[in-house]
Structure formats: C-alpha cells, structure tokens
C-alpha cells in the first residue's frame, strides 16, 4: 500500500491547541512578560531583567510563607493518607452500605471551596459557632481561631482534613475493590495475619491509586487559597498566610505585577519540581531487588 504524507491531519489538533493556548500558554506567557518588566501603568513599562526574581528570592516573608506551606502540606499528607486508607479499609464491601458510605463521604468534595471556608468560619466562631462556642462554654477550653495562631492552624487543618480526606478514601476504596478475591484467599491459606495481608497485598496493590492521591493532595494543598482565605484571611498576624495568600496580596492588593509575576513563576517551579520528585520516588518504592 502506498502511503503519502497528509499534513492536513494536523488541523485536527488545532482545537486542542487553541484551548491549551488560551488555558495555559497565553496566561503563562503573560506572567513571564510581567515578571521581567516594571509596569507603572498602561503602556508605561520598563524592562528590568531578573530584578524581580532577585528581589523575591531575597524576600523573608516569601520564605516564611514557603516554610508554612511545606509544614501545611506535610501535615496534610501525614494525616490524610493514613486516615483515608483506614476509612477505606473500614468501609463495607457490598450491600446497601456501600452507596450510603460513598455518597456520605463524597459530600464535602461537592461543596464550593468558598462555602467550605464560610461553613468552618461560622462553625468555629467562639461566640456562636457550634464547635467554637462548645469548646469555650461547654468544655471550658479557650478557643479562638481569630486570635490564637495555634487555634487558627487547628481550624485550618480540621477543615482541610474534613474537605479532602474523602478524595483519598474514594481512591483507596477503588484500589481495594480492584484486588481479586484470590489474593485474599491465598493469604488466608498462607496463614497471613491481617497486618501482613495489608502490608503485602493491599498496600502494594493500591500503589497506583495512592500515588495519584498523594500527588493530588500535595499539589492541591500546596496551592490552597480560597478556604483559609475565607476562614482566617491569613491571620492572626501572618500565621496562616500561605504562599497563594501572600501572592494575591502582592499581585492584587498591592498591584505589584512584576514581583507578583516573578513570585508566580517561582511558585510554579517549586510545585512542578516537588511533584516530579515525589512521582519518581513513589514509582521506585518497592521495586529494588533484595533478599
């Protein structure tokens, strides 16, 4: 059969190209454009090279927000991954309990992020919130997330865990359901304990979905904005000012587009870099040869 090049086929890629251009390439180019200029107003800008990058990399508040962000993402992964797996293991395997559990657990994922911030702001208010007022008045434990940094962190963590653990649960549950029954039967015949079954069958078989859960939770928690912004506004002080909240402060509240652009790119590179490292590491887990 004779083949001839038909370059018109490239036209089929065009719609995707246009969509990606508008959704990713053009915004990214705009940010890069901002990051190398000092903009005074429309049509008044000066090329400044890497000045904004140097300035941002020397910015102490950026580093504070960055460490805060790492602490936050670290805690999120540390709590949500084991908790999600645990809940998935405890869920029923068949019967009417399955849809009930799945729907109940998935509910937080369906709520708009701003609404979640609002729900938790009201829920934890020390004067009228069920949780906040309960802590203060019923248990006698002083709790005020608008005043105390630890209380603010606890509140943000609670909200985050409540909001996103369901994602880990759903993924882990799907992974568990995909394990053929024969593996459990073989484990029973081999006399494996429940712990050994988990360690050598369930966990390795869940690796794929858990990798996805881990990366999604890392990226999303690293980029978190709406919920803590609504809940604490980054306070008290700067104690819950995460990277994105700080970025919005610079870029939109102070309208420093140049430093904001440079900040965004640094932020982007960090997320990309860590996602890459985690992905590589997780791919390698349990693949070496040993006796």
């Amino acid at each position: 059969m004779e083949k001839w090049p038909n370059n018109r086929a490239w036209l089929l890629v065009l719609p995707v190209f246009v969509i990606v251009a508008f959704s990713a390439i053009i915004p990214l180019m705009t940010v890069i454009n901002y990051s190398v200029q000092d903009i005074f107003g429309p049509g008044q800008s000066v090329f400044v090279g890497t000045e904004w990058f140097r300035e941002m990399l020397a910015n102490d508040r950026l580093y504070e927000a960055l460490w805060r962000q790492f602490l936050f993402s670290g805690l999120v992964l540390l709590i949500e991954m084991p908790l999600g797996i645990l809940i998935a293991l405890a869920m029923p395997k068949k019967g009417w309990g399955v849809p009930v559990c799945l729907v109940t657990i998935a509910l937080p994922l369906l709520i708009p992020w701003n609404t979640i911030g609002t729900i938790w702001m009201i829920f934890t208010r020390p004067d009228i919130g069920l949780f906040g007022a309960g802590m203060n008045n019923l248990l006698g434990i002083p709790f005020d997330h608008t005043d105390n940094w630890l209380d603010a962190w606890i509140t943000v963590m609670l909200m985050e865990v409540w909001h996103w653990t369901p994602l880990v649960v759903l993924l882990a549950y799907a992974g568990l359901r995909a394990i053929p029954e024969a593996y459990y039967q073989a484990a029973r015949i081999d006399g494996a304990s429940a712990w050994a079954t988990f360690l050598y069958i369930q966990l390795p078989k869940m690796r794929g979905v858990l990798t996805i859960a881990f990366l999604l939770r890392f990226m999303d928690s690293f980029l978190i904005y709406a919920e803590p912004f609504v809940l604490t506004g980054g306070g008290p002080g700067n104690s819950t000012t995460f990277l994105s909240i700080y970025l919005v402060k610079i870029a939109l509240l102070q309208f420093d587009l140049g430093p904001g652009g440079a900040f965004s790119l640094i932020y982007f590179v960090i997320v990309l870099l860590f996602s890459f490292i985690f992905y590589q590491a997780l791919q390698r887990v349990g693949k070496g040869e040993k006796v």
């Binding site: 053929p180 024969a182 593996y183 039967q185 073989a186 069958i201 390795p204 078989k205 349990g286 040993k290």
Partner: peptide, 11 residues
C-alpha cells in the same frame, strides 16, 4: 489459583 497470586513486592 487460576491466575498467579504473588506477593508482588517480595522476592
């Protein structure tokens, strides 16, 4: 079993 049941992570 019908298909090989192994502990994948082990030697």
């Amino acid at each position: 079993f019908q298909f090989p049941v192994l502990y994948d992570t082990m030697t």
